[in-house]
């Protein structure tokens, strides 16, 4: 089953002044349980593609379906609701809420979903244990290392039981050990729980672990390779 399906996605910035074509027609399908890296040089359009897949931006042209739902025509507010229920985000700079503890950060999205307290508590503990932070649930982000913060971010992304996880350069700020640790956790979640991951990355360590690598160049997909690792 396709989790993400796009047809001829185009995105032009500044259409009225100096038009910049970031995407020139991208056709892409990602299936449930894939572990996919989107790579490419700066300016190739990978961030734009990720934003569109993640419902943070709209394409200028083309069709996009996430979890069998056409999201290209949704309003801002509908997109917010859609993201809350369907997409888990992991950002390069972790972007945790600094005034909340690890547990509260993970719980936060479930609160927005109006989940019951029992469910929130159980899932938060389960997720933090799954990313190896069972003993840090009451720590604030400032008390955690970069790698630990990014693991909290992964737990937070998983909390709402999204259709897939979108990770934008998740390892860019991490050292080798933290990167390896994070990738191990994501690979395990992917394998054991069949969770779909889509990364944008420059990091060869991430590319090496991905099972599918899509390369973007000048706004179009130049290669789409399945890897066996």
């Amino acid at each position: 089953m396709n989790v993400i399906h796009t047809e001829n996605i185009k995105k032009t910035y500044n259409p009225d002044t100096i038009p910049v074509e970031a995407l020139k027609g991208v056709d892409l399908s990602i299936k449930q349980g894939e572990f996919t890296a989107i790579v490419g040089p700066s300016g190739s359009g990978k961030t734009t593609l990720l934003n569109i897949i993640g419902g943070l931006d709209r394409p200028t042209e083309g069709y996009i379906e996430v979890g069998q739902k056409d999201i290209s025509k949704l309003s801002d507010n509908q997109l917010i609701d859609f993201r809350r229920e369907n997409i888990g985000f992991v950002f390069q700079a972790y972007n945790l809420i600094p005034v909340l503890t690890a547990k509260e950060n993970v719980e936060f999205v479930m609160l927005l979903q109006n989940r019951s307290e029992d469910e929130r508590n159980a899932r938060t503990i389960e997720l933090l244990e799954a990313v190896g932070l069972g003993d840090k649930i009451d720590s604030r982000p400032s008390q955690l290392s970069g790698g630990q913060q990014q693991r909290v971010a992964v737990a937070r992304a998983l909390a709402p039981k999204p259709t897939f996880i979108l990770a934008d350069e998740p390892t860019a700020n991490l050292d080798s050990k933290s990167t390896a640790n994070l990738l191990d956790i994501m690979a395990r979640l992917n394998k054991e729980e069949n969770i779909t991951f889509v990364f944008s990355t420059h990091d060869q360590r991430v590319i090496d672990r991905a099972r599918r690598v899509i390369t973007l160049e000048d706004g179009v997909i130049s290669t789409d390779i399945q890897q066996h690792n």
Partner: peptide, 10 residues
């Protein structure tokens, strides 16, 4: 931006 990205409405 993150709060809105993860689904906090306006």
């Amino acid at each position: 931006g993150m709060l809105m990205a993860v689904g906090m409405n306006k």
